[in-house]
Design a protein around this nucleic acid. Sequence first.
DNA 1: GTCTATACTACGATAGAC
DNA 2: GTCTATCGTAGTATAGAC
Lengths: 215, 215
Amino acid sequence: MSKSKRTAKPPIDNRLLDTAIEQFGRKGLEGASTREIAKAAQTAMSSITYHYGGKDGLYLAAARHIGEKVKERFAPLLAAAPDPDGLSAAAAAAQLAAMIDSLMGLLLSPEAAAWSRFIVREQAEPTRAFTIIWEEFQSGLSAYLVKLVLRASNGRWKPAEAKLRAVTLFGQVLVFRVARATALRVTGWEDIGAAQAAEIRRALQSNLRAILTAS
Amino acid sequence: MSKSKRTAKPPIDNRLLDTAIEQFGRKGLEGASTREIAKAAQTAMSSITYHYGGKDGLYLAAARHIGEKVKERFAPLLAAAPDPDGLSAAAAAAQLAAMIDSLMGLLLSPEAAAWSRFIVREQAEPTRAFTIIWEEFQSGLSAYLVKLVLRASNGRWKPAEAKLRAVTLFGQVLVFRVARATALRVTGWEDIGAAQAAEIRRALQSNLRAILTAS
DNA sequence: GTCTATACTACGATAGAC
DNA sequence: GTCTATCGTAGTATAGAC
């Protein structure tokens, strides 16, 4: 990840970008190879250079693409989301519950699995792509979450405390994707399907309520 | 990760193993190179072949080494740990709090940072090394945690529920290492030092108490 | 724009001197 | 046991035909 001329030429379709997200998500920047990506996308390797200026350019483009897609996905939710300052504590808690539910949906949904893997990888090993993802949607999302936590605490928590608690809430969601293998072994599940996701959601909601209402 | 003849010859010292853990933890199996590892360990690349049979063998040996070290670290805690079945709910909750505290210490301590990165990487992208780590210490640790959660719930939760909640508790700890960059941005901290670790510990304990005592 | 060719580098493995 | 030297095979990048 050094220069990446950032050639701005748009590709004809997104086959290359989609397979890049898939491969980078699974194997990381070094683990994935441009040869394999090009082959899986049924095109020549040199088109990566042509469209994205090289491997690094493709990686960053993948981050941008994911950012836009996730932003789109959360757009309706955020658009319909009321200003936390105008909410009652209970309403803020309910909205918070809905947000956590959506986040869980994103991290576990099969269609978003490739995005999810890519994002999770950037969480653990941030590269320049992290900044892109952060600024594209994570920044706004987490700011909104913190505001909701703050409001839901009904004045019991200072902003710093609300931020900290928001991270712990995020962690409860993240763990099922990032430590999926561990979660499966502990619970004894064979997979995290619809039934398991429902169980997780229920537990998360219960934890949330407990944390928010504790003295 | 295919054959790895598992040459059992013991190395003279652990320089190679230590730098391997460092590099594999930072860059992953594909990202790290045997040349760099050997150079950083101030030895010839071929000694990797000699002692560990190759790159894969070194990787697995690293996992085994980490497993042993972490096991050692938790041994006194587990040895002094009472049988959960004989504890009161309150005592189980207190013990659980202590365990979470130790887990947090492991994930954030500078000396264990290299182990931590390696382990976290295996959580997200399990290879054959995951099984080693799991069987070495994670298995026993999580089984004990689940027992404590079960006991601390005072009969309110079934075993399946206790397992699920244990994972969410683990997630609250894990997030500060695995999504460190996000945690820093949300909280506005520049680093997670002793002061921040104390804040995190306090928040985690508070969350734990809330979750366990909720109706 | 997309392909084939090829150049160049870095990788992991291994043989053999000491 | 540890080193140097070398081999074969990936990797990315690039030039140029179409």
